[in-house]
Design a protein around this nucleic acid. Sequence first.
DNA 1: AAACCTTGAAGAAGCGCTTCTGCATCGGAT
DNA 2: ATCCGATGCAGAAGCGCTTCTTCAAGGTTT
Lengths: 338, 338
Amino acid sequence: MKEVAEAAGVSVTTVSDALNGKGRLPQTTRDHVRTIANRLGYQPSIVARSLASGKTRNLALTVSTADASTFAFGAVDYFVQLMSSATIKALEHGYSLILSHSDADRDASPLPLDGAIVVDPVLDDPALAEFRRQKIPVVTAGRDPASENASFSVDNDHAAGTERMLDHLARAGAQRIALVSGPPVHSYIVDALQAYEGWCVRRKVAPTVSFAGYSLTEAAGYAAASDLLSGPDRPDAIYATLDRLALGVSMAAKTQGLAVPDDLLIAGLSDSRAGRQASPSLTALALDPSEIGKRAVEMLAALVENRPVAEPHVTVATKVIPRASTRRRLGSRGKRLH
Amino acid sequence: MKEVAEAAGVSVTTVSDALNGKGRLPQTTRDHVRTIANRLGYQPSIVARSLASGKTRNLALTVSTADASTFAFGAVDYFVQLMSSATIKALEHGYSLILSHSDADRDASPLPLDGAIVVDPVLDDPALAEFRRQKIPVVTAGRDPASENASFSVDNDHAAGTERMLDHLARAGAQRIALVSGPPVHSYIVDALQAYEGWCVRRKVAPTVSFAGYSLTEAAGYAAASDLLSGPDRPDAIYATLDRLALGVSMAAKTQGLAVPDDLLIAGLSDSRAGRQASPSLTALALDPSEIGKRAVEMLAALVENRPVAEPHVTVATKVIPRASTRRRLGSRGKRLH
DNA sequence: AAACCTTGAAGAAGCGCTTCTGCATCGGAT
DNA sequence: ATCCGATGCAGAAGCGCTTCTTCAAGGTTT
């Protein structure tokens, strides 16, 4: 930088201002400095810049899961979409988005951050706690299950979405809708559970919930559904709180010789390619993860730059996507509803 | 840090030395400082540390491809394995391994690096050029096609491996072995091509090469093989320079009603899960990407730390893994060889 | 013509560390 | 008793930027 200053016949201050568009300099000076700078192939030191400015222009996107080992980030469409849109939005705002798993940070020296997005924080989330300790601005995608409105958040309207999905199932002829749920460690699962129970109370039916283990895989859904389907009072519809669980439910139905949707309706939370391509294709509550990612980054950028944040808790609408797995029944059981 | 120094009743120098295991300090002082430091929850600023030391402890792993858009990093077993082992080795040496695609760097401000591994550099690789310009130490996995021994490298013995594979095919009864090759922009492809041609000359047979386009997918292999198989003088064995190409060859054979291995032997460069699980399972030249990744990181670490590098050009052995797709023929054609 | 504002740019003080150098003190060796 | 090499630690100079402050020169206003 000093060399550029000398070559341009100005001070380092002027070089800095010219290159960063700050200060009160006429355009001619700026252009001159810029010309010299890239003639010399000057590359500013990001490290020095960060130290001096106190900003790193890095944001983290961390995914929290109760059980890290069994979790494959890329296996869930939701995260991939959220991540993609967040990365793009971050770039637009001049930030780099760094991916990390909440467990991964422990080993490596964490990169210096200006802010972080925590996706689906769990109860007593370690990453969340660490960010707060370091006073790093955080936006959560989904809410902190511990302290509802403690942090800025972007979330889906899971309660409303769940009810709409249950209504959809009922309309399709379901009379006993069971819930296959992950462990209630994420806010979205808590929301879904409560909405389900409230819905059941209002409809005056008994809720039936089967919990999958911490590994939210097809196998977990398969196991949870097998229990439900082989027991007494077999449900005629199952709503699963994750697409992969729903896929597992579908497999369980197949194993038990149940036809979908004729003997069992199946729907899942969160749309995914796998669900779309499954046979039968699965009805899903679409969450619009791209929108979540974008809004989270925008909010975080405002936070980091000390700009006012319009809405500390943004809600993104969900949408029921009806597919073959909940096609309206034409037989006797469907008619009995009316 | 100043606070820690005051709380411990020592100078900042001593704090720095104690925490980093440098200087001439008795263990008691070190322990004392450390105790105080984490009582105060002191976290050193990585940025300041980097600026002062001139080191970032970051290494990059960049994958070069001639055509970025059509390339899915995670779709190739080879890269995933290489990356995993490299990450672990890097961590052992106290470095973070940052993944990047050579094109991705252009937009974002690149993270400051101590060194970089360029996987399969292409001809006039932009990432390689940029690292050299910035005088960042580089180790290539595969060699720079432009200037053979310009940079430190870790590579497979592709020439020897290709010959062994061709021998294997010949022993299995092949008489006309064709090559399905990617574009010769990577050293490994150039190596394979040359070895193939040399082998043909020695065996006094005419070489037959079909080039796939820049997208090294199953579709590309399918197209390249379809040409070969529908033309005159149909080959009775095909060696493809990438597992995904080989999978495409297999599909092409199936389409044309050719049985593998009875009518056509198929082998591919680079072992992969997909090839193992294909039907028939594909014979492959295993490249041991884990070893490549490890050795590359070790070499790079030595380079970065100004330690002497024992071998500037490491070679990792390849191994023919015979599978169903090249099972020895028992019929007449196999016997004709002798 | 005096007082004031604007414009263009330089000076200098850090940001929070590392590291080189210096300087006591103390225990042996002579 | 003297000298010398360890040993234990502090001072201070940066690393390469940003940014706050200052300041001169020129242009306006009354």
